[in-house]
Amino acid sequence: MKGQLNWFKGGFLLAAAFLLAVAFVKPIGVSTQFVIADGIVWNLFSDTVVKKDTASKSGYTSPNAYLNKSGGKYAKNVAKPLNYSFVFVIAMLIGAFISAQLGGPKPAAQDRIAPEPWRNRFGQKPVLRYITVFLAGVLVLFGARLAGGCTSGHMMSGMMQTSLSGYLFALGTFAVAVPVAVLVYKRN
């Protein structure tokens, strides 16, 4: 597609992003912030989901076992959304927007509803695509949270650090994703 970098230049740019992040702060990760975003909304409607607690390692605690994990690390980030990891993920949206505006690849109107392989297989109806992608989103984030990271945190950042978990995650993901993609979209 026009505006898209070739694998060498694109890979170089991605490598720079992952390397700069770990050089200055810490490895890139995304999927945790879906939990933080849920927590922020939950916290708007509840007085009990996150509480200050000097006894906890982070200074915050939650009755929810997941938000309370690792000394209330997530609970703290829910209480203070202006933290590095959450702002990083919001800034990604701005970066992608800038790229799209400054000569990056631009999807056509029909691509904005469903990508070409989908249209070739299932036609133009938006509703089927939207429902399927919603359910796929549920699986993707549930799976990523069970795994403790996603393509960014486990696969890219993990394998960059030669972390065993990165290789295991990539194995689990591709062992399923490749046959599913072939089955759903066929090879031609």
Partner: peptide, 9 residues
């Protein structure tokens, strides 16, 4: 990072 993801497709 967002720029890189968009630009690589």
């Amino acid at each position: 990072f967002g720029f890189a993801l968009q630009r690589v497709g």
